[in-house]
């Protein structure tokens, strides 16, 4: 299995190379000039030209590409932001923890809220509980995030003064943004859980468990939920992967310094080093998340373990051939 993990980690290299190529290509064809945001709209043409020269924007694109990749490979240097002149890597690393915390916390909150809801809905199918919780989760999915964010801000910060309106100095500052993203995910997770549980509780092994004289709760949780987890975990993995790209709306409403606003600003300013660095980091993070999810699948469902075991062997065999 270690082999499998190493193999998957090695696979990230072509992924990242592909991402770098695509982003470079996009930076060529995207209209807009990063120099504008650097020297200002009223800078004389000579100054613009000098700035282009300084940034290396006048080099042919393949030279720029080689320079960029060589710097990454030899020095781990993702370049400096056009706007701030700071190393992109450092800038991202101060922001990534915020996004990671927000993502993990909101997913946990969403899971805590949604899994019981989904399970109860499936078990009490078509009851009022089912209808109510599905209506709730539909609302969670369909309420616009910015609206929910502003309304909770209005209620908890402006009217009730229970929570701070901005700043994440303490735990209390995290409550609203986590809740805002969590509620959106909650609806999604609850529906997945319900659908998956509905399928599972009709399986024969659930009847077997009942025939053993097992309590209903144990039947549902131990025999049912564990089998229903795969689609839920898959969904959670996707959501985490997407969320790592940043929560632009939550960041802008609750004044969080996350990856989302950073990337948005970088794209708007055509700040290519930041965009490229950010996307490479996201590609790596996404690959790692997907690897973790695959390992989790195997931990949940032993049938899937054989899959990566055989992949590991394939890898070993090829090595033997070479030797």
């Amino acid at each position: 299995m270690l082999r499998y993990i190493i193999k998957r980690l090695l696979w990230m290299i072509p992924v990242v190379v592909g991402v770098v190529c695509i982003i470079f290509f996009l930076s060529v064809i995207t209209p807009g000039d990063p120099v504008t945001s650097l020297v200002g709209a009223d800078a004389p043409p000579e100054v613009r030209e000098a700035m282009r020269e300084k940034l290396g924007l006048n080099d042919p694109i393949y030279i720029q590409f080689v320079n960029y990749t060589v710097k990454i490979i030899t020095r781990g240097d993702f370049g400096n932001s056009y706007i701030t002149g700071q190393p992109v890597f450092g800038e991202l690393m101060t922001r990534f923890p915020v996004t990671l915390k927000l993502t993990i916390a909101s997913v946990i909150v969403a899971l805590i809220l949604s899994v019981p809801l989904g399970v109860v809905s499936a078990v009490k199918r078509n009851s009022w509980i089912d209808n109510a919780s599905m209506a709730l989760s539909l609302m969670g999915v369909s309420i616009p995030q910015f609206w929910l964010g502003l309304m909770t801000l209005l209620l908890f910060a402006v009217k009730l003064h229970l929570l701070p309106a901005s700043g994440i100095a303490g735990i209390s500052g995290w409550v609203l943004p986590v809740l805002m993203i969590g509620v959106g995910n909650m609806g999604n997770f609850a529906r997945t859980t319900r659908a998956s549980m509905l399928e599972v509780i009709q399986q024969d092994y659930i009847r077997t468990a009942r025939a053993k004289g097992q309590t209903e709760a144990a039947v549902i949780i131990r025999h049912g939920l564990r089998n229903a987890l795969i689609p839920i975990v898959a969904n959670v993995g996707n959501i985490i992967g997407i969320s790592l790209g940043g929560a632009v709306i939550a960041e802008s409403i609750f004044s969080l310094s996350g990856v989302g606003q950073y990337m948005l600003n970088a794209i708007n300013a055509r700040n290519w080093p930041s965009v490229q660095g950010g996307i490479i980091m996201l590609a790596i993070a996404f690959s790692i998340i997907m690897l973790i999810m695959d390992l989790l699948y195997a931990a949940i469902d032993p049938r899937l373990k054989s899959e990566f075991r055989s992949k590991g062997r394939l890898f070993a065999k090829r090595k033997q051939k070479v030797a």
Binding site: F146, G149, L150, L153, A165, S166, G167, I249, E251, S252, I253, F254, S255, S257, Q261
Partner: peptide, 8 residues
């Protein structure tokens, strides 16, 4: 304090 959202 940087608060990007105008309503917030």
């Amino acid at each position: 304090r940087i608060i990007t959202d105008i309503s917030a």
